[in-house]
Design a protein around this nucleic acid. Structure first.
Length: 312
DNA sequence: AACATAGGCAACCGCCGCCAC
DNA sequence: AGTGGCGGCGGTTGCCTATGT
């Protein structure tokens, strides 16, 4: 037997709210509050609406200090950064933007902001990025399963990798270590705007509150022969506006670095000069790192390609 | 002017987690 | 400890308006 509906569907009004209904709901809540029970509220307020509908109407439209209208550049930046960090957790994103509702932000993202960002790429890059994201997204089920199966066998650093301090991994951690589960995936990359293939080998690293994936054996065009793979830290603050990433070097040390892009190699996550990252976003009003944008335009299923929170 | 298509947004649906019983 | 109800959330739908043909 299925669960009982929250209200009598046959006797509740659906569709847009009339000004009269708005006034009725507003007056009731201002007078008596919600009483912590939305299901019972409509009857008390004399409304022929479902409790959930009342709740939504109040939260998204009627409650005080709701901000409607254009989003500012600063709000854009916050939304993009948070989306890239935590995905489509609209309520959390909304909590960072006073007066904005999760529904508003979700609509804004889906209808405008995503396109605004996409417009910053040439069609050629858009295609490449889409296919890059798609390839990586295919890895997700494997990565997720890998994590579930091997939660206890990840390498755990003695100190947090979140932050900007360098942290050394044991010699041979990344190579010839059969105890560490790994997952290899071949995916496209675009050195110097050419399409190529590389094998990415992912090693989950257990940090305080998340798993981060470092990699090696990535074909790399940097002159110092370093290997590179982006990983993300939950500690990146929105105002920093960019991600941290792993730079895994030949000497098997791991250090945290910014994931930056190179002007002539927009999909190579690390340039020879790690301090310069103007790239194709140069002079644009919105400054986003490529890795952020890859997240932003990824499938939109809420999964971040290399980000897996295991707190629960 | 009429119709088709796209865009924007409010609202609904259904799932999930929490909590009271 | 198990169960059911509710609130919260993200995804999706569908209506209205704007724009294009």
């Amino acid at each position: 037997m299925g669960r009982a509906p929250c209200c009598d569907k046959a006797n509740v009004k659906k569709g847009p709210w009339s000004p009269e209904e708005d006034a009725q709901l507003k007056e009731f809540i201002e007078k008596y509050g919600t009483g912590g029970n939305w299901i019972a509220l409509p009857q008390k307020a004399g409304l022929k609406r479902c409790g959930k509908s009342c709740r939504l109407r109040w939260l998204n439209y009627l409650r005080p200090n709701i901000k409607h209208g254009e989003f500012t550049d600063e709000e854009d930046r916050i939304i993009c950064t948070l989306y890239a960090t935590i995905g489509s957790r609209w309520s959390i994103i909304a909590a960072q933007l006073p007066g904005r509702t999760d529904n508003d932000i979700k609509n804004y993202w889906n209808t405008k902001l995503k396109k605004k960002l996409m417009g910053k790429f040439t069609p050629d890059y858009q295609g490449k990025i889409s296919s890059f994201s798609a390839t990586l997204s295919q890895s997700l089920p494997n990565l997720s399963q890998l994590c579930k199966d091997n939660l206890n066998s990840f390498y755990t650093p003695t100190k947090s990798l979140s932050g900007f301090e360098s942290s050394s991994l044991p010699q041979n951690f990344l190579y010839n270590n059969n105890d560490i589960p790994s997952f290899t995936n071949q995916c496209s990359y675009y050195p110097q705007n050419q399409v190529g293939l590389m094998d990415l080998k992912y090693y989950p690293v257990k940090d305080q509150n998340m798993l981060m994936f470092g990699g090696n054996e990535a074909s790399c065009s940097s002159s110092d022969g370093s290997y590179s793979q982006i990983s993300y830290s939950k500690d990146v603050k929105p105002e920093e506006g960019r991600f941290q990433g792993f730079l895994i070097e030949e000497n098997k040390k791991i250090m945290l670095d910014y994931g930056k892009i190179n002007s002539d190699d927009p999909l190579n996550t690390f340039s020879d000069d790690h301090e310069k990252a103007n790239g194709i976003f140069d002079n644009s009003q919105l400054q986003y790192d490529l890795e952020e944008v890859k997240e932003l335009i990824s499938t939109g299923d809420g999964n971040n390609m290399f980000f897996l929170n295991y707190e629960n």
